[in-house]
Design a binder for these strands. Structure first.
Length: 514
RNA sequence: GCGAAAGUAGCUCAAUUGGUAGAGCUCCAGCCUUCCAAGCUGGAGGUUGCGGGUUCGAGACCCGUCUUUCGCUCCA
């Protein structure tokens, strides 16, 4: 690990990513686009390898899990059913003095709660005074209580009307009229109320027509839910079974930060596991452990992971946990495992009018399955791998080298092939080795500069092995193979290279550790 | 979105009070070279993020804007 400050280390990761072609800022020549990044030539390889490893671990190794690829565009009603149209819409307001941001609806609700508190105190006081106290009667007759209640009702009505009309200036006016102050600064110096819809929208068909607004999906899960019955029936799937998918999702984040950790366009890898109601907790525990094991198999260090169980649950969940990873800026969510109950399928039943039930032959009855979800951010995983792998290593001779200790199966190049010198027929032999191996392995070839320099170049991009052709190779058909992490070299017959690389760098070898 | 800091070559950074934009590394071509960023020769690469302003003159000062990092906030 590096002895740099975390902040500097993080900056180093960003510049390393750019310098070697892993990640570029989107549209950089136009000053970039905020919180959007492109994967370069090496980044695309690394990302693809991570995605492949996940896909194989989920789909190929589990007979009861299949993969789909749903469209980004979905019928708009999907997002009404999922709750995103309503729940993803928060009216926000800032206090100009304390610089704090609040949800306008929360401020108003808190104000209402204070009034309710006053009512309760009145009731409490009265109950001590009178015997045979009737709270309901008291509330409906006491003048002070009635006054409070009328205020509450008026506020709620006004607030509800304003929200339904999407009248944000009325919401602000309400806050001003109620003389709500900022709890920090105590001032009433508020900004306008703004609505942040976290879903991107566009139009389908001719632009001017109304009612054709469609959204870019804010999560990939709904593509699975709406297809669940198609897959179950055509795939003859029996509960418990899973549907996996990788793909892009889009969120118009208010603040998107920390490089590729929180982007507006990002890729999810997720699996929805459909189970018999009542068994969801045991599957929830199963997938928590299975997913953690998958992360641990990458060998980035067991101490870099931890669970974070949610105490406050989303509206759809009855249990939720994050697998957190230690990024350079601290432990942050990498993957979520949620027990989503039958919320989503029930919602789609209601909004579509279609039955989404499964007939369970063992129980001889139909039901809407419960769902356990595992959802990883591919870009976050990429960042986790990259930041754990990048090291500035001090060498015995006093030099330092920049080495990317990627898991071999994920590395963009599995090996680099060098002729020791650019003459004497060594390049020709190196190229012939390359042309035999290139069908099975991503390989780099380099004959420029001294061999030491070439080793360092490959270290910096995470190539696990360097194969060097020297003069002895011409005589006895052997080459040296050099290990990225240990820098040790071994002389092996050329004909064994294929076997060695397969054993050490294939996804299969990683899958077998699961 | 608010606040702070920053933006100069692919990367890391210089540039005295406002006075002709430089270095190291990288990259390219060549020479030399029998294993860990060697050496030599030559070369490429910049409207100093962008747009205005002040000034005889701006990389530097002022305004706006974009982007990044950090803090707050947000992240079902």
């Amino acid at each position: 690990m590096s002895n740099q400050k975390p902040e500097d280390f993080f900056k180093n990761i960003i510049s390393h990513s750019k310098e070697y072609g892993f990640i570029f800022q989107s549209s950089e020549i136009y000053d970039g686009l905020s919180a959007v990044y492109d994967y370069g030539q090496l980044g695309a390889e690394l990302k693809k390898n991570i995605r492949d490893y996940w896909w194989k671990a989920m789909v190929q190794l589990n007979e009861n899990i299949v993969g789909i690829d749903a469209a980004i565009f979905m019928h708009p009603t999907t997002w009404k059913a999922s709750g995103h149209v309503d729940a993803f819409n928060d009216p926000l307001i800032d206090n100009k003095d304390s610089k704090k941001r609040y949800r306008a609806d929360v401020l108003i609700e808190e104000h209402v709660a204070k009034l309710e508190d006053k009512i309760n105190k009145e009731v409490e006081k009265a109950s001590k005074r009178f015997e045979n106290f009737d709270a309901v009667m008291f509330k409906s007759t006491n003048a002070r209580v009635k006054e409070y209640q009328e205020k509450i009702d008026a506020i709620n009505l006004r607030f509800k009307t304003a929200l339904n009309d999407n009248n944000l200036s009325e919401v602000k006016q309400l806050i001003i009229d109620l003389e709500i102050v900022c709890p920090i600064s105590g001032s009433r110096n508020w900004t306008d109320v703004r609505q942040f819809n976290l879903m991107f929208s566009t139009s389908m068909g001719s632009v001017s027509e109304e009612g054709n607004t469609i959204y870019l999906r804010p999560e990939t899960a709904q593509g699975i839910f709406v297809n669940y019955l198609n897959v179950q029936k055509t795939g003859r799937m029996k509960i418990p079974f899973g549907i996996a998918q990788t793909g892009k999702a889009f969120r118009n984040e208010i603040v998107a930060r920390q490089f590729i950790f929180r982007m507006r366009e990002f890729e999810q890898m997720e699996m929805q596991f459909f189970v018999r109601p009542g068994t969801e907790m045991q599957w929830y525990e199963h997938w928590k452990q299975a997913r953690l094991n998958w992360h641990l198999s990458l060998g980035l260090g067991a101490d870099k992971y931890r669970f974070h169980d949610h105490l406050k649950l989303a509206h759809y969940a009855n249990a939720a946990s994050d697998i957190e990873h230690q990024f350079p800026f601290g432990f942050k969510e990498l993957e979520g495992i949620h027990s989503r109950t039958d919320f989503d399928l029930k919602q789609h039943e209601e909004f579509s009018g279609k039955k989404l039930q499964y007939f369970d032959p063992e129980l001889n009855q139909s039901y809407v399955p419960y769902v356990v979800e595992t959802s990883v951010g591919l870009d976050r995983l990429f960042l986790a791998v990259l930041s754990s792998a990048l090291k500035e290593e001090a060498l015995e001779n006093g030099d330092t080298r920049s080495v990317l200790s990627l898991p071999a199966a994920l590395a963009p190049y599995k090996a680099a092939i060098f002729p020791l010198v650019k003459k004497d027929g060594l390049p020709e032999l190196a190229e012939s080795i390359m042309s035999n191996l290139k069908f099975d392995f991503m390989l780099a070839y380099d004959e420029k500069d001294t061999v030491g320099k070439r080793y360092r170049r490959q270290d910096a991009i995470g190539t696990p092995f360097c194969i060097t052709v020297d003069h002895q190779s011409l005589e006895d058909k052997t080459v040296t193979i050099r290990n990225r992490d240990t820098m040790h070299q071994e002389r092996v017959p050329i004909e064994q290279l294929h076997t060695i690389l397969t054993e050490k760098t294939s996804v299969q070898s990683l899958l077998k550790t699961l």
